[in-house]
Simulated assay, not measured.
Amino acid sequence: MKKTHFLALIGLIVAAAVLFCGCTGTTDDQTTTPTPTATVAEDVQVKVFHAGSLTGPFEKVKAAFEAEHPGVTVLLEPAGSVDCIKKVTENGKPADVLASADYALIPEMMLPDHADWYLTFAKNRMVLTYTNESKYADEITAENWYEILDRDGVRWGFSDPNSDPCGYRTPMVLQLAETYYKNDRIFETLVSEHSNITVTEENGTYTIHAADPEPDNVTLTIRPKADELVKMVKSGDLDYAWEYRSVAVQNDLSFLELPEEIDLSAVAFADNYATVRTEAKKGDGTTLYAGSPIVYGVTVPKIAEHPDLGVAFVEMLINATGQEILTADGQPPIVPAGGYGSVPDALQSLVEMQE
C-alpha cells in the first residue's frame, strides 16, 4: 500500500510539472503574455508582379491587405506585362500574384505550364497625356491631335512594344486613326518617319512591325515602361505621351480622350480593333499581338511560394474593396470578374465563369 501511495505521489508531481510548463506566462490573476504566431514571427512576404499601370491601385490594395493580415508584407514589383510574365516563365522567379495589362498574355504565355487559371478584372482606354506646359496644349482636340504631334518642335512618346502592352497598343491606335479620320498618312508621318517601325497591309489587316523600333529620340521617344514617360511629361522633357486613362488620372495629368472606334476601350468595336496587330520580339523570334479591347488579367502562378495568400490578395482585388479602389483610380472594374480554368473555390462566389 505504501508503494502505491508513493507512485501516486510521483504521478502528481509529474502532472504538476507538465501543467506548470504549459502555463508559462500565466500569473495569479490569470493574465497571459501572448506568444506571436508563426506567421507574424516569420513576417511572410507576398510577391506581386504587376503591370506598371496598376501601381496606383495596387499600392492601395496592398495597404488594405496588410491591415487585414498582420505579419504579412506585400512586395509590389511593377514592370511591363510581358517582362513580368517572363520573370516567372523564363527566369523562374516566384510570384504569389501576377497581374497583366493584357489578360490574353496569361493564357498565351503561362497556361498550362505556369498557371492553370486566370481572371479578367478591369478595363481601360488609351489616351494622349500632357500638361499645361506642353506645346499647343491650348489647341489640341480629338479632331486635330495627330496634326499637333506632327508640328515642329513637338516631342512625344510611348512605351516599348516589345515589353509593355501600352507600347504595342499605341501604334494600333495610330493605325486605326487613319481609317477614322480618313487620312492615310498619319502612321507614316508620326511613326515611320521617326523610327524603324513600319506597317504592311494584307486583306484588310494591318501588321505593325515593331520588333526593332529604333526611335530618333528627337521627335519620338520610346521607353521600356510607361511610368518613365509620365515623369518625362511632368518634367517637360516630353510634350505628350500615350498612356492608359487610369495612369493619367493617378498622376494628375491632362489627357485627351479619343473616339471609342480607335481607343481600344469598347467591346462594341472589337471587330474594328482586330484589323490591326503589332509584331514584337519574343525570344529569338517574333509574336503578333492582335488589337482587342483593353482588359486586365490576374492569376496565381504555380511557382508561388504562398499560393493561399496570393488567392487572398486576388480576392480583395475583385471584391468590394478592390472595386472601389479601381474606380477611384480611373480604372473601371469588371463586376463580376470573369473566370477561366481551375479557379480556386475561395474566389468562385465573386467570379462568373467563362467558356
Rank of each mutant, 00 (worst) to 15 (best):
R245W: 12
D308Y: 06
E257R: 08
Y244Q: 09
K225H: 14
T219F: 14
I294M: 14
A304D: 11
L317S: 14
T221S: 05
V311A: 09
L238H: 06
H306F: 09
K281H: 02
V300Q: 07
N319M: 11
T278M: 01
D239V: 04
A312V: 08
D216M: 11
A274F: 07
M316D: 14
P259Q: 03
A241W: 08
E228Y: 07
E257M: 12
D252A: 12
L256R: 13
L253C: 13
L264P: 03
N272V: 11
T275H: 11
T287E: 12
E261R: 02
K302Q: 13
F255P: 15
V233W: 10
L256W: 10
L309E: 05
G285D: 08
K302P: 05
D227C: 00
G297M: 03
L229A: 12
G310M: 08
P215K: 09
L229S: 10
K282R: 09
K282E: 13
D263P: 01
I318C: 02
R277H: 04
V249K: 15
K231L: 12
I318H: 02
T299M: 07
L229M: 07
P307F: 15
V276G: 01
T287Q: 11
V295C: 02
P301E: 11
A248H: 04
D263Y: 00
D271C: 02
I303F: 03
A226H: 08
Y240W: 05
A280H: 07
Q250D: 11
E305H: 05
N272R: 15
L220S: 10
